[in-house]
Amino acid sequence: MLYTLLSPFADTFPGLNLFRYLTFRTGGAIMTALVISFLIGPAVIRWLKSKQRGASNIRDDVPEGHLAKAGTPTMGGFLILIALSLSTLLWADIGNGYVWIVVLVTVGFGSIGFMDDYLKLTKRNSKGLPGKLKLLGQIVVAGIASAWFLYLTPDPLAAGLAVPFLKDTLINLAWFFMPFAIFVMVGASNAVNLTDGLDGLAIVPVMIAAGCFGLIAYLVGNAVYSNYLGIHYVAGSGELAVFCGAILGAGLGFLWFNAPPAMVFMGDTGSLSLGGALGAMSVITKHEIVLAIIGGLFVLETVSVIVQVVSFKTTGKRVFAMAPLHHHFEKKGWKEPTIVIRFWIIAAILALVGLATLKLR
Rank of each mutant, 00 (worst) to 15 (best):
I30T: 02
L67I: 01
I36R: 02
T106H: 02
S56Q: 11
F114N: 04
F109S: 04
I139Y: 09
A147Y: 09
V35W: 08
M31Q: 02
I94Y: 11
G131D: 10
D93G: 13
L22W: 09
G137T: 13
L121I: 06
L48K: 00
G110R: 08
V62D: 10
N125T: 04
G97L: 01
A33G: 12
L119P: 06
I112W: 13
I94T: 15
G41L: 14
S56C: 05
I94M: 14
L89P: 05
A70F: 04
V103N: 05
L34Y: 12
K120W: 12
G110D: 09
I112T: 15
G71I: 07
V62G: 09
L22C: 06
T153M: 03
T32Y: 02
N17T: 08
K134Y: 05
W100R: 04
G65D: 13
W100M: 10
A147I: 01
Q52A: 08
V141K: 13
G95E: 12
F114V: 14
L39A: 15
G27Q: 11
R124V: 04
D93C: 12
L89I: 14
Q138L: 07
T153K: 01
T122Q: 04
I82M: 00
W100D: 08
L22D: 11
M31C: 07
L84A: 00
L39D: 12
Q138M: 09
R46D: 15
S50G: 15
A83M: 00
L119E: 15
V103T: 06
A55N: 05
R20M: 08
T74S: 12
I82S: 01
L67P: 05
T74F: 01
L67N: 11
M75E: 04
A83V: 02
V107N: 00
P154S: 05
A147N: 10
W148N: 03
G128Y: 02
I112N: 14
T88R: 09
F149K: 01
V35F: 14
F19A: 13
A142H: 10
T122M: 06
R25C: 09
G113H: 03
I58L: 09
S146V: 06
D11Y: 09
K69R: 10
D116F: 03
D61P: 08
L81C: 05
V105Q: 05
G65S: 15
S146I: 06
Y21Q: 11
F19L: 15
G76K: 02
I94Q: 14
E64K: 13
A29W: 07
L136G: 15
V62R: 04
V107R: 00
V44P: 01
K51W: 02
P130N: 02
L34V: 02
H66V: 14
L133G: 00
K120Q: 15
K69V: 06
V107F: 05
A68D: 12
D117L: 11
T74Q: 02
D117Y: 07
L150V: 13
W148M: 05
V102R: 13
A145L: 14
T106S: 07
H66N: 12
G110K: 08
L79Y: 01
G41I: 08
D117F: 07
L84K: 00
P14M: 09
N125G: 11
N17Y: 03
V107D: 01
A70W: 03
R59N: 03
L89D: 06
I36Y: 01
P154I: 03
K49Y: 06
G95W: 02
